[in-house]
């Protein structure tokens, strides 16, 4: 790891100021992605701004028909939150299947969503539930947030402060883990909310994406039978030693059907 200057601000405002003042600075939430990256010398920030002491960023609230989760909220807290379990059990389930217990004790929703790893789980939930990402300066709808491989709508120095998930009538997440890393090789989040049916796929492509054909079919008939003949083209999907594009495309179908069945249970 290269050395850097460490900061531990107590407020979002102070954190944002630090990040704005130091162009080579990086924010750190749980550090579960950032620290491994630094250890491998794949990044060389001048400053690390640890959000660990920013109290206002943590916590889970129910606001009307929405579950609002602070950016610094740990995966373990989402997984075990009675509020999340009651409102959107699929989201708690997803959080409970990220990494291992130690990763869940430190990794955060804001860090995960900001990082937008193509194999991360949360982006599936954010898109399928049509969540809204709130930053220190604005609100970004899910469909506009994820831009591509490790790319998001966040500007330099912009911090995710919370994410607001509309409650779902039905929802489920099915993850097919990469056998080695256990990140999502294919993860499908299916949700029926006030704004309709959404099917979001993570792991399979360079960035989370929706499957329109499935959404349309499920809007008419929310059953796995309705999507059994919908095939996903393999073109443009990820391919590596654990899964060819063709295999991933196939798994999207399998996981989507299983997710629908689970959502109907």
């Amino acid at each position: 790891m290269y050395d850097f200057t460490y900061h531990r601000p107590k407020s979002v405002a102070d954190a944002v100021k630090l990040l704005k003042d130091k162009p080579e600075a990086r924010a750190m939430s749980g550090g579960m992605t950032l620290i491994p990256t630094l250890k491998q010398r794949l990044a060389r920030p001048s400053d690390v701004v640890d959000l660990g002491a920013v109290k206002e960023l943590s916590g889970i609230k129910i606001e009307g028909a929405n579950v609002v989760i602070g950016g610094m909220t740990k995966h373990a807290d989402v997984a075990t939150s009675a509020d999340v379990k009651a409102a959107i059990p699929a989201l708690a389930h997803l959080a409970g299947h990220i990494g291992d217990p130690q990763v869940r004790n430190r990794g955060t929703i804001g860090g995960s969503v900001a990082n937008n790893d193509p194999a991360a789980d949360y982006p599936g939930a954010v898109v399928a539930l049509n969540a809204t990402v709130t930053t220190n300066s604005r609100k970004i709808p899910a469909d506009e947030f994820f831009k591509g491989l490790f790319e998001t709508a966040l500007a330099d120095g912009e911090l995710i402060t919370s994410i607001s998930f509309p409650k779902a009538e039905k929802a489920a997440y099915m993850k097919f883990p990469n056998p080695a890393s256990r990140y999502a090789m294919v993860g499908v989040f299916v949700a029926k909310t006030a704004s309709g049916v959404r099917v979001a796929v993570t792991g399979a492509g360079g960035c989370v994406f929706r499957v329109k054909a499935m959404e349309d079919a499920l809007a008419k008939n929310f059953s796995s039978a309705a999507i059994k003949d919908i095939n996903i083209p393999a073109d443009g999907l990820n391919s590596d030693i654990h899964g060819s594009a063709e295999y991933r495309a196939h798994l999207v179908g399998v996981m989507a059907r299983r997710a629908v069945d689970a959502a109907n249970k």
């Binding site: 080695a180 890393s181 030693i241 654990h242």
Partner: peptide
């Protein structure tokens, strides 16, 4: 390619 626990199962 299988050079870490990310890829070596």
């Amino acid at each position: 390619i299988s050079g870490s626990y990310m890829d070596y199962t």
